[in-house]
Amino acid sequence: MILATACGAPCAKAQNNWSAAFVNAPPIGQQILVDFGDQLAFDKSANTVTLADGSTTFDLNEVTILSLDSNPRS
């Protein structure tokens, strides 16, 4: 799945083994857990994570969420 129009930048398809799960349990509240299918390397000073195969490093300061309404009946 590619969001070519929404990004304003080159987009890439997520890997098949990437997944995300939403949880909302008090008292912690709303969270999304993102699983990349393998271990991550965390760089605390740069606030980045690098995938296990070293192919990509993500900037954790720039994580955004886009929403698309689905089944909006009420």
């Binding site: 995300a20 999304i32 993500f58 994580v63 955004t64 886009l66 929403s67 698309l68 309404d69 689905s70």
Partner: peptide
């Protein structure tokens, strides 16, 4: 609702 998590390399 469908959301997309956007990560930047």
């Amino acid at each position: 609702k469908q959301y997309f998590i956007v990560l930047r390399s």
